[in-house]
Amino acid sequence: MNYLEFEKPLAEIEGKAAELRAMARNTPEMDVEKEAEALDKKAEQLLTDLYKNLTPWRKCQVARHQDRPHCKDYIDALFTEFTPLAGDRNFADDHAIMGGLARLNDRAVVVIGQEKGSDTKSRIERNFGMARPEGYRKAIRLMDLAARFKLPVITLVDTPGAYPGKGAEERGQAEAIARSTEKCLQVGVPVISVVIGEGGSGGAVALATADKILMLEHSVYSVITPEGCASILWKDAEKMREAAEAMRLTAQDLLKLGVVDQIIAEPRGGAQRDRKAAIEAVGKALDATLAKFDGKSAEKLIAARRKKFLDMGRKGLAA
């Protein structure tokens, strides 16, 4: 288990319990089980308390947790017959965005998502989930494919943002994002997005302009990272706690603002503590959401999606 900074007290208690049990194993005559159990209970209570009222900055840390299930984990566990489709047909295949045909409970869909990677090697290969224009152009191509063959589109959003690199800019990062957002709005099939970790700015919008936007309980979605916001408005990147607070980037605030449609509850202590349960919860929510769109015509879908975004934010926090 990798503990976050604010989980240190928890790590101490859990560490003590483990220590006790290890000691007991060496000296069988010692009976520590009672004590250890008390510690377990204490740890459990602490975990519940910690996660009940996570501050926005702590949510950011949880959303970025390395043990959290990533796009590939969800695809592997929830979908069958996943057939990755690669390339933008112009320049390259971007490994930061994965996508392809797959079945969700036997229903054929197109699934697209940002993958951050799970160890150093795969993180580098995936560019930490920061896509280049090729990634967005691949997504556009896959959405076109979905529309042509009437397959729903599911996107799994988890990115710090689009990659700020020289080549990415030269090849039209902004244009690729704009076109991807445009494509999301154009396809005559249901588009469902789940923010599973970090929804980072334009790089997220490009895949998250959807009929229904779901968010995991401890995921975040924002216009800029709290560090970036702090360095611009506070002139001090260390003020990220204040920035995170002011930005309203938690799933709970975004639901209030009407920017997202549904929150998917996470297991106690976050998705990273029970990956299987978190993945199952997402699967269930996706299934239920998709069912709502059965039989809807392309025109109706597009019109409703447009209206949703045109009306968005008209009420502010009062919504």
Binding site: I177, A178, T181, E182, C184, L185, S201, G202, V205, T209, Y221, S222, V223, I224, C229, I232, L233, A246, M247, R248, L249, L254, L257, V259, R306, F309, L310, M312, G313, G316
Partner: peptide, 16 residues
């Protein structure tokens, strides 16, 4: 930035 996510939502809004 002071409008947070709502400013981000102007990307799809203007595109519509």
């Amino acid at each position: 930035m002071q409008e947070g996510i709502l400013s981000l939502m102007q990307m799809p809004r203007t595109t519509v």
